[in-house]
């Protein structure tokens, strides 16, 4: 039997934790993308076990400094975007708009950095055809780069939306979904960076 006390605690907890960030649908997209990337991570790890020398040689040719810089850019972007989401929910559209613009700038920095890194590697003669390490490196960071591009465009759209659209539940949902997508891109890079550059 439930006493009235435990019941009220239960309902209070249920009420407290019923929140779904963004909306339910975007979590289907996030879960799907996480599963696809999990397959990519496992493929990298298996390839590493099959050809340790090829992977060690490929890794040694990467500039870890550029990789760290890109990680810091995305993390800082996440911090700015999360601040933008908080600010937008408080109704301060103009300030939120600036945060999303700064987040988009981090995304552009990431893309520029990738361009520098890739063109350097290609000048050295590396290509996806060189060996299995470069195949995984170019394809998976390429797929991720496409995500960064989408995220950057989304942040620019949010920046505009926050200065133009009125605050409210519709804008909150749009803004939260954008934040979630950006953080997804960030956390996928964290694992890719560890598997491709660090190990």
């Amino acid at each position: 039997m439930q006493t009235p006390d435990t019941m009220s605690i239960a309902t209070a907890q249920a009420h407290h934790s019923a929140r779904v960030p963004g909306e339910a649908g975007i979590w289907i997209f996030i879960a799907g993308d996480l599963l696809a990337f999990t397959l990519f991570f496992v493929l990298i790890a298996l390839g590493n076990g099959d050809q340790p020398q090829v992977f060690a040689r490929g890794r040694a040719s990467l500039d870890i400094g550029l990789g760290v810089a890109n990680t810091l850019l995305l993390l800082t972007g996440s911090w700015l975007v999360a601040a933008g989401v908080e600010t937008s929910r408080k109704g301060a559209g103009r300030a939120a708009s600036r945060y999303f613009l700064a987040g988009a700038a981090c995304g552009l920095g990431f893309i520029a950095n990738k361009f520098i890194e890739w063109s350097h590697l290609i000048r050295l003669g590396a290509s996806p055809q060189t060996d299995d390490f470069y195949m995984f490196f170019f394809v998976f960071t390429g797929i991720h780069l496409f995500h960064v591009l989408l995220g950057t465009v989304y942040m620019l759209v949010l920046s505009r939306a926050c200065s133009k659209r009125p605050a409210g539940p519709e804008r909150d949902r749009f803004v939260e979904c954008g934040g979630l997508f950006w953080h997804l891109v960030d956390l996928l890079w964290i694992v890719l960076f560890a598997l491709l550059y660090l190990i």
Binding site: S17, A18, R19, F193
Partner: peptide, 21 residues
């Protein structure tokens, strides 16, 4: 370390800390 970072991004930035269980 990478996955602890992922956990932190999820719980704090993606607001899963306060989300439905």
């Amino acid at each position: 370390i990478a996955f602890l970072k992922v956990l932190a991004v999820g719980l704090q930035f993606m607001e899963l800390r306060e989300a439905v269980w």
